[in-house]
Amino acid sequence: MASCGGEKMPEVIEFMKLALEQAKIAFDSLEVPVGCVLVMDGKVISRGRNRTNETRNATRHAEMEAIDVLLEQWKKEDLTKAEVAERFSKCYLYVTCEPCIMCAASLSFLGIKEVYYGCANDKFGGCGSILSLHTSTTSGENVGRKGYNCTGGIMAEEAVSLFRNFYELGNPNAPKPHRQPVQQT
């Protein structure tokens, strides 16, 4: 595991700023403000932001958007599956909020190298908050399963303040329980 928080390398901050830029675009589009960038060899190769309201597809999280951009591009380049897997294994994700269980599982399936996130996601988080899908500690039968390093708390205040502004306005597309997440069963 990489160091948690602590000394933040300047390049990590720079990439997180780009992810926050994406989150702000989401905010301006009346989407839950989460954004991300994917980085390979020190360069941003894909960006994504939440588009769940626009698409009416609640799985269109920033990570999924950024991943699909890449896959599209790599397929145009005629890469084989093995080559695509090879590239994912060199990718770093910078995302403003801890990946949810769905995204955390996806990143594990793809075999991404490392994740840096802003604020924790204590309702849905799949990188330690609710489940720990980034670790590879389950039984050895899962051939091909790789874990990825995950470091949280990068510019978390900025990410949280975007959320706060958003929920003060109210998510125009969410029904009531979504705006005020109260347990009701």
Binding site: I67, K81, A82, A105, S106, F109, L110, V143, G144
Partner: peptide, 20 residues
């Protein structure tokens, strides 16, 4: 077998595979 997508052969342009 969600981790095993890359182990299988792909077949170039006509292929519309997607690991997720």
């Amino acid at each position: 077998n969600p981790w095993g997508w890359s182990n299988r052969n792909s077949c170039g342009r006509a292929c519309s595979w997607h690991p997720l």
